[in-house]
Amino acid sequence: MPDDQNRRRSLLQSVKAPLIFSAVLGAVAAAVVFMATSGGTDNPRVQQGVGEAGGLNAPINLALIAFGIAFIVALLLVSMLQLASRENPEELRQGSGVNLNSEELYRQQVAERREKERRKKQEEARREHGEPPYGRDAE
């Protein structure tokens, strides 16, 4: 088992950071909605009974809905940004298909083209100077 899996990840690399950030953002949204729907700090709404005008008119219900929406949206955004910015492990950069290391392939192709050009120039120079063929070319 690689050492990377054995060591603990930091707070920013773990799942806790997006959860904490989303919870704080949700709490701020809930507080703002609760203050706005209860009439602000100068004009607080009179506490209503259980049977009277409940549902979405109650400030706490709207605050909880705002918390849930803000929490989910922030969690999705932060998680996607965290995944997008994370580097792939080194072993995934080697291989074939999608994970093929294209820079190495490009260097190999350039080296092969240069080698072909060098051999072609050597062959042309040999033919120009009248040098007898050697090896496989002798046949």
Rank of each mutant, 00 (worst) to 15 (best):
G55P: 10
E90K: 07
S14F: 08
I65E: 05
Q13H: 13
E52S: 05
V24W: 12
R113G: 13
L19R: 13
E90L: 06
S79Y: 01
A29F: 09
A70R: 04
V73K: 02
G55R: 12
L25V: 13
S10I: 02
K121A: 15
Y106M: 13
L77T: 05
A23S: 08
V28L: 05
M1Q: 09
V28T: 07
L12C: 11
Y106D: 05
M80P: 01
V28Y: 05
D4F: 15
L105Q: 15
R9Y: 11
D3I: 04
Y106K: 08
S85T: 05
L12F: 14
R114A: 13
A84N: 05
I60Y: 08
F34C: 04
L83I: 00
E124N: 07
S14C: 11
V46R: 15
M1H: 09
K121G: 02
M35E: 13
S79L: 02
V98H: 08
A58P: 00
A125S: 06
E103Y: 15
R114Y: 11
Q47V: 15
E117M: 12
V78K: 01
A74F: 03
L100P: 09
G26A: 01
V110E: 11
G40T: 10
M1A: 11
K120T: 15
N6H: 14
N101G: 10
L75T: 11
L25E: 08
M1L: 12
K16G: 06
V32G: 03
A27M: 07
G68S: 09
R86I: 03
E87M: 12
D4A: 13
G51V: 02
A58K: 02
V15N: 12
V15I: 15
M1R: 13
F67A: 01
V28Q: 06
I72F: 08
S102T: 08
G39Q: 09
E91W: 15
G55V: 14
Q108R: 10
Q13N: 10
T37Q: 07
R8L: 07
F34S: 10
A125E: 12
N43K: 03
G40S: 09
N6K: 14
V28C: 03
K116C: 14
P44E: 02
G55A: 13
Q122I: 15
L19P: 03
R119P: 00
L11P: 05
L105K: 13
M35C: 09
A53R: 07
P44H: 06
L76R: 03
E103Q: 13
S79K: 01
S22E: 01
V24N: 10
L76E: 01
S38Q: 14
V98N: 06
K116R: 14
R7P: 00
A29H: 11
I65C: 04
L62V: 01
R107Q: 15
A63Q: 04
R86H: 00
Q82T: 00
Q48R: 13
N101A: 15
V50S: 12
A30S: 04
E112A: 03
D42H: 11
M80T: 00
D42Y: 12
L83S: 02
N6G: 07
V32K: 01
A74R: 02
A74C: 12
P44L: 05
R118T: 03
V33N: 01
G97K: 03
P2C: 11
N57F: 09
L83K: 02
R113A: 08
E90F: 09
G26Q: 05
L56K: 10
Q82V: 03
T37V: 03
K121V: 12
